[in-house]
Design a protein around this nucleic acid. Sequence first.
DNA 1: AATTAGTGCGCACACGTTTGCGCAACGAAT
DNA 2: ATTCGTTGCGCAAACGTGTGCGCACTAATT
Lengths: 340, 340
Amino acid sequence: MEEETELKPTRRTTIVTLSQKAGVAPSTVTRALRGDSRISTKTRERILGLAREFGYTPNALARTLSSGRSGLYGLVLGPSTNPFYTELLHEATAQAEALGVRLLIIHAGLGPIEERTAEALLQYQVDGCIISSAIMTSRASEICAANQVPLVMVNRVAMQRACAVTCDNRAGGRELAELLRSKGRRRIAIVRTSSTSSTSQEREDAFAASLAKDDLTLALRLDGHSTYDGGFEAGRTIAAMAPAERPDGVFAVSDIMAMGVLDAFRLAGVRVPDDIAVVGFDGLPSSARPIYDLTTIEQPLPLMIRRSFEILQSRSKDQNQPEEVLSLRGRLIVRGSSGA
Amino acid sequence: MEEETELKPTRRTTIVTLSQKAGVAPSTVTRALRGDSRISTKTRERILGLAREFGYTPNALARTLSSGRSGLYGLVLGPSTNPFYTELLHEATAQAEALGVRLLIIHAGLGPIEERTAEALLQYQVDGCIISSAIMTSRASEICAANQVPLVMVNRVAMQRACAVTCDNRAGGRELAELLRSKGRRRIAIVRTSSTSSTSQEREDAFAASLAKDDLTLALRLDGHSTYDGGFEAGRTIAAMAPAERPDGVFAVSDIMAMGVLDAFRLAGVRVPDDIAVVGFDGLPSSARPIYDLTTIEQPLPLMIRRSFEILQSRSKDQNQPEEVLSLRGRLIVRGSSGA
DNA sequence: AATTAGTGCGCACACGTTTGCGCAACGAAT
DNA sequence: ATTCGTTGCGCAAACGTGTGCGCACTAATT
């Protein structure tokens, strides 16, 4: 203990270290590094040289303390059973890297965001948080509101007051219904999910409304729990029906469920699209696999994430902006599963 | 500007705020909150009460600056095309939540960890970093070494000096080979990956070594690029062979490739396991789907992550511990794809 | 020669928390 | 009545950056 001042193993080089080497004040180093115009080019070059030489890396945490901006964004993901969230994570990571900010995983899975989880947002002073899937307990959203943490819900319209960026679920549902109707499908089932999310409901409502234009109603409504296994079970149920009364079209409100439906049909010998057409929603990369060849609506994920970051950055500058809900049109991808 | 002292919108309550309300020094508040025995129970209760009343949440960043520990762990993930990384993420997130620490996404994808990316580890003063999949540029690993950032490679043995936690790939490869041999399979193909990772090579080596005991050699070696699509292509190649010379067994060194192989066989009408047996490696949840019913080795992911955190925490206390490489036995799961 | 208008930089404090040290007050033991 | 140990707490510095203000110096204008 007595010798600790001697043993200190080459501490990290900081702005203070550099200021001593350069014989200037720490504030000069800060400004030189940030390109402040008040510092002469000569001094700046010298300091930049020293910074490189001694391998200086700024301490983002200290900067946060001083400036208030952390460069950290929270990310809340849904369960691992839906690859959509994996796509979202990768897209968000890539964009964060490009923006020079970092993502903090706040939560991943099914359950709601608890108070304890929400506090992490404050503890690490995040500049904002992207929430997909999960809902917040009212206490958790109170905490965020009270502390001015900008939030944006992705693929979900908030129950609470909050910004949201979603795919246009109604337009997508309508397009898929129109497609099935145009192919002459008349007995149509839906595999939906009964979670608290708005997404499934919107897709179903618009789908059913479009069917109604041909005086059709949904022949069957099954719950697929937003999982492959749930879709598979639903598919087995449909496949087990007598061919005469079996639907000739299925809309699974998410691709992962559609994949389960398709595999169940395949195992049961129900032919797609001859016996029954199948359409999904999300545009997962795996929906393009030849084995599925699934007709679906592709969510514009890159743009959705981009807009999310824009909203967060804008709101962290001025917290009092009105909330905005953004709906982006998806792209219909017609593949073999819906029939020729 | 003149009025800004008036307009300050109820700043977040800090330790200083609390100390004023309680009429004590900030240091007393700190100690009371942390349960220091030197503070009287009465004072502590009073301060805890105020903390609740005013919704105090500690500022983790300021704490880091002062104490050196951030409670942040970096996480580097592989590409979204392999669900294994999704499982890893969710397991790591769940355990981090239980440990009261947070995960910072450092990188997700194929490319190596660049210098710029590695710097994020320093900027946010992470207590350690879990690296799966990616390799680091030598410059990046120099940076981490120089700044004493504890690293642990998961599912990968480091080229550079570093700790690692992996599944016992050799034992797994051997077990799978023994299984196929015991089922009488004699012409065996492997779908591997030529990346720089040690994992594929270890699995293949042990697999081939076991085959050699029956004087068998690998009939075919294909590159599946660790993706479904790569596995699918490999499967098509195999399926296109004349039945007489076609292999009667395939080892795909990762489940995601095995799934591609299986689907290619299905589309080509090659029957599994009658015409050809298929085995994988990783134990992905999706390998259990009835449509795949894939025999595989399940990696003990929960334990792997637990040990990883233990290693990181231990090394952040004492950086000079020798490096350790931990190999955990996987579990053979025999399913239908390898034959009865 | 006196005023002005820059240019280049330093001083000092702030951000919120932790921590080593030390100081009062109090009861107990000499 | 002095010394001692204990309990309970405060002081002040430190962590690394950012920033408002102001000072010195030079050069251009009256």
